[in-house]
């Protein structure tokens, strides 16, 4: 009797310890997010104060080391926005049609091979994308458009488009495969062809999942630094397709090593702006996923 009681209280004790450990692990994750947020806000605000919010966000010249320094990050913001938009325009149609093909049309063997390839594409480090872009894409663009230098926004867009493909394809395939077969049967039984069925029933039924995939791609593209730094020329110009440009991410990555004083503080502010973008994208993602769960 005594033994049994002991065992039971020991078990209860153990349970509490384990519960405590898991709670702690969970708190560490939340703690990291909070720490980053607080740190970015605290270190990002002073420079914005000193430069002025409007001047900082909408100034079109970034010359932190000139005799009369100027700290406008509009070129970075626009480059990040254009670069991401370009990657979406290029990558989403390819990813979307690939996903429809894989989810609905592809023979099992081909599907297996392509899905493996897509998974590998997701696993390639971004520096490798950058390297290949630098060696193949940049010279290619230089030759094709007869430029003095091929390192430009267009090169970055192409690299980003390839980089966001895996997440778009995978999430869209999952969404399309989750469409109940009953919908498709109903459409076919009305005399619609398989193609009509996919595009008029399956895709609309999977639209919130596909939208979430696109938003995820946007997040990935706007946050990418290494690959775009290697192919975009990394000069703080206002963006143009064939201009050498610098992204929000690459501005921080390339200058942080030597910056000091206000320039260093301003880089934290750039990071804060990037962080706000990512937060907005996450909010959009949550919105789409919630819509999916509701229906």
């Amino acid at each position: 009797m005594e033994m049994k009681k002991n065992t039971r209280s020991w078990q209860k004790h153990m349970e509490q310890v384990v519960y405590g450990i898991f709670l702690l692990l969970g708190l560490i994750t939340i703690g990291c997010v909070l720490l980053i947020t607080v740190y970015l806000v605290i270190s990002g605000i002073p420079a914005i104060r000193q430069i002025g919010l409007v001047e900082f966000l909408f100034g079109d010249t970034w010359k932190p080391t000139a005799a009369e320094p100027s700290y406008g990050i509009l070129p970075f913001i626009l480059t990040s926005v254009y670069g991401t938009a370009g990657a979406i325009v290029l990558g989403v149609p390819i990813g979307f049609f690939t996903a429809v093909y894989l989810a609905k049309m592809a023979p099992r063997k081909i599907k297996l091979v392509v899905e493996q390839a897509v998974s590998m594409l997701a696993g390639i480090p971004s520096v490798v994308y950058g390297l290949v872009g630098m060696m193949v894409l940049v010279p290619g663009i230089r030759e094709l458009f007869d430029l003095s230098d091929g390192a430009c926004l267009l090169a970055a867009i192409v690299v980003l488009a390839v980089m966001i493909l895996p997440s778009i394809i995978k999430m869209s395939v999952t969404a399309l495969e989750a469409v109940p077969k009953e919908y498709e049967d109903a459409s076919l039984a009305l005399g619609a062809t398989p193609e009509e069925t996919w595009f008029r029933v399956s895709v609309p039924a999977a639209k919130s999942g596909i939208a979430a995939a696109v938003v995820l791609g946007v997040g990935r593209a706007i946050g990418e630094a290494m690959a775009v730094m290697m192919v975009s020329g990394n000069v703080a110009n206002m963006p143009g397709l064939f201009e050498s440009v610098r992204f929000l991410t690459t501005a921080v990555a390339s200058e942080m090593g030597y910056a000091s004083g206000l320039q260093r503080q301003a880089l934290f502010s750039v990071a804060l702006v990037l962080f706000v973008f990512i937060m907005l994208i996450n909010a959009a993602l949550n919105y789409f996923l919630k819509g999916d769960r509701k229906s």
Binding site: P180, E182, Y183, D185, A186, A189, V201, P204, A205, S295
Partner: peptide
């Protein structure tokens, strides 16, 4: 069909 299957539209 056996189970009512209207499209989600």
């Amino acid at each position: 069909f056996q189970k009512p299957n209207p499209f989600p539209m």
